[in-house]
């Protein structure tokens, strides 16, 4: 009886899951294919709405797996030629570079993409394209800090900021990219002394996420914090009045405006080497760079759209234009591992 019940349940489950399975199979069997398989690290509600919009417009079904970029790349690597992935979306350029190095991506030749995505936000060899960019900025306490005293990332290593700097763990990719950009522009030893200087000035052991750094400034645990722009937007947009209050208690600085520019990173998209539906993949990637999609990114997620001319969110507009680091983003991937090792060496957890 019990056994019969179990078999029933298992059977039911397999039947229940059948649509998923078959949709994937048909995607590879039937021509012309009517779907696109997306491996994405982005899991925002707004992305989901965009995918649905794409389905509406093109009739191409979007199948999605969400996981961290590391895991997705690892999975694509294991799957090899059998991989069902058409498109890979990450939240940093380093991972895209890594996927390219591992031979998991292919060239996406498209005039639309070249027109929509400025050269500095895409791979020179057309393996990947940015869809949005984010700036890693310095936030300061409006009460306690004179913003003119901070101009660069390097400022944070000065003695006056001892026990006042808040920044999250070195296992975070945004910090890794920031350090990689310093390695690329100033060399290893400078980068190391920067990391070590910041570590010395930390107000506490690195913990929490970007939002928590802002809250810690508001709480008075430190005076300056390093974080990505859109988290401030999310704080100010929060349903919780206390969070809004915390967001309002800080001001922001775009560092290194005089020199190399503020460090930016992209959220980007690429076509998989073994994409079973390359035409659909290309359409999908082009769609993400279109005005419609770019506006959604800008409005709902406080990211900077890569496409010139697309309106920014009012908050971003209020912060004004700024100079972005001109560094080739591929270098972030190249120096990533070295950056992590430097973090370890200086004891930045």
């Amino acid at each position: 009886m019990k056994f019969a019940l179990k078999i029933l349940i298992v059977g039911g489950l397999l039947v229940g899951c059948a649509p998923e399975k078959s949709s994937q199979e048909t995607s590879q069997e039937s021509t012309p294919s009517t779907s696109v398989n997306v491996y994405t690290h982005r899991h925002y509600e707004s992305d989901q709405q965009l995918f649905e919009r794409f389905e509406e417009v093109t009739g191409i079904e979007v199948n999605v797996i969400n996981a961290s970029a590391d895991e997705l790349i690892n999975r694509m690597e294991l799957e090899g030629e059998a991989s069902p992935a058409d498109v890979l979306i990450t939240v940093d350029a380093g991972r895209l570079h890594r996927a390219k190095e591992k031979g998991l991506l292919q060239v996406a030749d498209s005039e639309i993409l070249e027109a929509n995505v400025p050269a500095k936000f895409r791979d020179p060899e057309k393996h990947w394209f940015g869809i949005t960019y984010r700036a890693r900025i310095i936030a300061y306490s409006l009460d306690r800090v004179d913003p003119t005293t901070i101009t660069t990332y390097e400022t944070l290593t000065e003695p006056q900021w001892a026990n006042k700097v808040l920044i999250r763990s070195s296992s975070n990719i945004y910090n890794q990219s920031l350090l990689a950009s310093i390695i690329a522009s100033q060399g290893t030893s400078q980068a190391k002394s920067w990391a070590s200087g910041v570590k010395e000035n930390m107000a506490r052991e690195p913990k929490g996420n970007d939002r928590d750094q802002v809250k810690a400034v508001a709480a008075g645990l430190g005076d300056v914090a390093v974080l990505n722009t859109y988290y401030i937007g999310k704080l100010l947009d929060s349903d919780d009045q206390e969070e809004v209050g915390a967001g309002e208690s800080i001001g922001i600085i775009f560092p290194n405006q005089e020199g190399r520019g503020t460090h930016v990173n992209i959220s980007g998209v690429a076509m998989a080497k073994y994409a079973p539906n390359p035409e659909n993949a290309l359409k999908f990637i082009e769609f993400l760079s279109s005005d419609e999609a770019q506006m959604v990114f800008a409005e709902t997620n406080f990211e900077y759209p890569v496409k010139p001319g697309v309106a920014w969110a009012p908050l971003l507009t209020s912060w004004g234009e700024f100079n972005t680091d001109t560094l080739n983003l591929a270098l972030l991937g190249k120096h990533n591992k070295e950056a992590v090792m430097i973090f370890d060496e200086v004891g930045w957890k």
Binding site: C17, N63, E71, P84, N209
Partner: peptide, 21 residues
């Protein structure tokens, strides 16, 4: 890591939202 396409569970969704802060 192992789920099929378009397959979300409560746990994966909760985690995604939480990691998106």
């Amino acid at each position: 890591i192992l789920r099929p396409f378009n397959f979300n569970t409560l746990a994966t969704r909760a985690f995604e939202l939480a990691t998106d802060e």
